[in-house]
Design a protein around this nucleic acid. Structure first.
Lengths: 102, 102
DNA sequence: AAAATTTGGTTTATATTGTAAACTTGTTTA
DNA sequence: TAAACAAGTTTACAATATAAACCAAATTTT
């Protein structure tokens, strides 16, 4: 009845990051930080986890002389994100008179 | 852009419990345990947290001679649940060509 | 009628996670 | 050249989730 929620995505910050990346082809660290309002440390850690899971790829380069970290969602990440959304629906749209809630 | 997700609801088991209660007026411990597949211990703890938050009420009685714990969602719980669902939408339906995902 | 099993939980301990604070490396500005 | 800023990373700590162990009463088995 209640499918398991991918723990990697069931995290506020990681979900926000994936949500952004789902819409924009690629985004750099600073942009993600601004959009999410996260601290650098937290963001860095969560990006590592998403990378380790193969959900995103990270490229490090330079923009002028400044370091620049660019993130991009992988196909596996896209699939995981879709699956997560589907799973969530099961939770949010449970039976009862209310019917579908989403 | 990304609203804060109520940490009390952003938990797999608590969300499942609330989801069930959102649809059924009331449910007892055993039923919740069966539906969620959770262990008793875990369920007990999460029910306590939802109770402490005022999201559900718990009534302890007897069904015949056996103890019986019945849970029911409060109005505050219903509101929190609705708000959580709304907040989640912001995460899941981010911009990009895909558009709304839910 | 003891002994073993089941029911319906609670308490406690542990493993995992999330988060912030501190640090690093290099750059720009005063 | 010293101070402040940019872009992160590392590390340490606090909060969470989960399971394991436990408990009391009821029921079933022998």
């Amino acid at each position: 009845m209640f499918p398991k929620l991918d723990p990697l995505l069931h995290s506020e910050l990681r979900l926000a990051v994936m949500s952004i990346l789902a819409g924009v082809d690629e985004a750099d660290f600073t942009y993600l930080k601004k959009q999410t309002g996260a601290t650098s440390g937290n963001l860095s850690v969560q990006i590592d986890k998403l990378t380790a899971a193969g959900y995103i790829t990270v490229e490090k380069g330079f923009k002028g002389k400044m370091p620049r970290t660019t993130c991009k969602m992988t196909p596996a990440g896209q699939e995981a994100f879709r699956d997560y959304v589907e799973a969530l629906k099961e939770y949010l749209s449970s039976g009862g008179p209310g019917g579908q809630r989403l």
